[in-house]
């Protein structure tokens, strides 16, 4: 048995970073178009040190198409996984996740409504859509939790998930309705239900990175409080946690992060649900270790899923949500059975 320290050690940080960089390199080297490894590495190396990159197809594909996509996929995967882990801890609910709680659908609904109504923020492209998606994600979360609270004071696992699923279905049909009535060109329903990162660029990378940095720091700092929540809200209160404040901050942060992810990548299911579970098998339930590890594992998982979506049927592309749902559902059933057996 490995002795588990209380914190996320430097050693594991280096280990996971190394794994992430390896997977990212793999994802940049492999793709629909096969490019010689040497060309790929030269293009990357020269860009990294600001050297002249030889012109050609490989430069365009590697630096303008694959690199931003790989970075965006890693950031979205990390963000979704972190959000899932935080919500599972906060609500003491192993099934909590953006997609099961209806937050993703809420965000998608906000984004679609903003697109249909032409909501715009001066200065920031897509700012209006993102802001509306965040607000809508938060409102959906509040709505779902208060409904669950009214129905069942103990906020039990089943009632929250049930309401979340019902809300997701409701939001999906409203999205469908808006898309069929809107005069504007709105991305198809598959984007909002399955997600896709094809065609995203460095402008999205900047936004995602900024959001993940800001929200990630906030969530990671609440590791200790989330540990207290895991034992029970009363327990948290007894050891001096400002329950209301922590809850509100985490819920807002999660909504912001999911809102941004959904408006850029659509709703990608199962990442936030499955990855924290898999991570927990590795790190144990301590949030101080779980949360940072979930960041890395989510990124790695989504990178591999996107690699499969890009390459399996080349030159045809799959929806990333198809891959995550396929792998995620199977993985989830296996985990579920194993934890049952262990009990």
């Amino acid at each position: 048995m490995i002795t588990r320290s209380d914190r996320f050690s430097w050693r594991s940080c280096v280990l996971f970073s190394f794994a992430l960089v390896c997977v990212m390199l793999l994802c940049i080297c492999a793709g629909s178009v096969s490019i010689p490894l040497a060309d790929t590495l030269t293009a990357l190396w020269n860009t990294l040190w600001g050297l002249e990159v030889p012109q050609g197809i490989s430069k365009n594909i590697i630096l303008n198409v694959r690199l931003p996509r790989v970075l965006n996929v890693a950031l979205v995967g990390a963000a979704l996984s972190l959000c899932g882990a935080a919500m599972q801890g906060l609500l003491r609910n192993p099934l909590a996740d953006g997609s099961t709680l209806g937050v993703s659908s809420g965000a998608a609904l906000g984004a679609v409504a903003a697109l249909a109504l032409g909501v715009k923020l001066p200065g920031i492209p897509d700012g209006g859509v993102m802001l509306t998606a965040m607000a809508s994600a938060f409102l959906s979360l509040v709505l779902i939790l208060s409904l669950a609270y009214v129905l069942d004071r103990s906020l039990s696992t089943h009632s929250i998930i049930l309401i979340g699923v019902i809300f997701s279905m409701f939001a999906s049909s409203v999205i469908n309705l808006i898309i069929s009535f809107a005069q504007e060109h709105i991305k198809s329903i598959t984007f909002w239900t399955m997600g896709s990162l094809s065609g995203t660029g460095f402008s999205h990378t900047r936004i995602l990175a900024a959001a993940l940095l800001a929200c990630g720091v906030i969530i990671l700092r609440y590791g200790r409080e989330l540990n207290a929540f895991a034992i029970g809200e009363d327990n948290a209160r007894h050891i001096g946690v400002n329950v209301k404040k922590v809850k509100l901050i985490i819920l807002i942060t999660v909504s912001v992060l999911i809102g941004i992810c959904v408006s850029i990548a659509g709703s990608i299911g199962f990442v936030g649900l499955v990855m924290p579970h898999m991570t927990r098998m590795l790190t144990g339930p301590n949030h101080k270790r779980l949360l940072p590890t979930a960041l890395f594992s989510g990124a790695i998982f989504l990178l591999l899923a996107d690699l499969a979506a890009r390459t399996l049927l080349s030159p045809v592309e799959l929806s990333i949500g198809v891959v995550t749902s396929l792998v995620g559902a199977v993985a989830f059933i296996i985990i579920f059975c194993q934890t049952r057996k262990a009990r």
Binding site: G31, S32, I61, S314, P315, V316, L318
Partner: peptide, 20 residues
């Protein structure tokens, strides 16, 4: 340029760039 697919299909951006 995409005579190797049948009907309407989602395709990879990389392929469009490579097929030039």
């Amino acid at each position: 340029a995409f005579a190797d697919i049948e009907g309407w299909q989602p395709i990879s951006q990389e392929q469009v760039i490579e097929r030039n």
